[in-house]
């Protein structure tokens, strides 16, 4: 299941809903991404006061659905949830929730990491950081591309 929204989410309620009534689930692994109060660019580390997330709505949906399908093909019987927020968010705000429910923990951990790694390089979202005086678009990290690439070899 995927959802793109401006409003916040309650991870506990979402996870409860994901596994509700499913006796074959043995564990859930979740990841929550938050807005930091310092810049993503490694050299500067400047304070940021807010971040605005822009996206390409139809393509975002298509790409996130594709990532879920790939995870299901790879790990079989799993339940997946991706919630991603857009719009203006302030430090400490939740940005993204990925949750994977599976019969055993190894699959849940691995599939959750897979979804996050691929989301980082394939899903069309862009972050713009606002500092005290200027704002700038966040640049993609080579390390994120490398992490997504590792899944191709497995």
């Amino acid at each position: 299941m995927i959802r793109i929204q401006t409003k916040d989410f309650d991870a506990g309620a979402e996870i409860k809903n994901l596994v509700s009534g499913k006796g074959n689930i043995g564990g859930v692994c979740s990841f929550i991404g938050l807005v930091r109060d310092f810049s993503a660019s490694e050299q500067s580390g400047e304070k940021i006061t807010a971040m605005t997330l822009e996206h390409y709505p139809a393509m975002t949906e298509k790409q996130l659905e594709k990532i879920e399908t790939q995870a299901q093909e790879r790990w079989g019987s799993i339940e997946t949830l991706i919630i991603h927020r857009v719009g203006r968010l302030e430090p400490t705000a939740q940005i993204v929730l990925v949750a994977v429910a599976a019969a055993h923990r190894d699959v849940a951990f691995e599939a959750a990491r897979f979804i996050m790694d691929i989301l980082k390089t394939e899903a069309p979202f862009w972050k713009k950081e606002e500092g005290p005086t200027t704002s700038k678009w966040v640049e993609a990290k080579a390390s994120d591309i490398a992490k997504a690439g590792l899944w191709e070899k497995k």
Partner: peptide, 10 residues
């Protein structure tokens, strides 16, 4: 056709 910078979500 869509043009954009490398993506930075998550």
């Amino acid at each position: 056709v869509a043009f954009f910078p490398p993506v930075t979500g998550g």
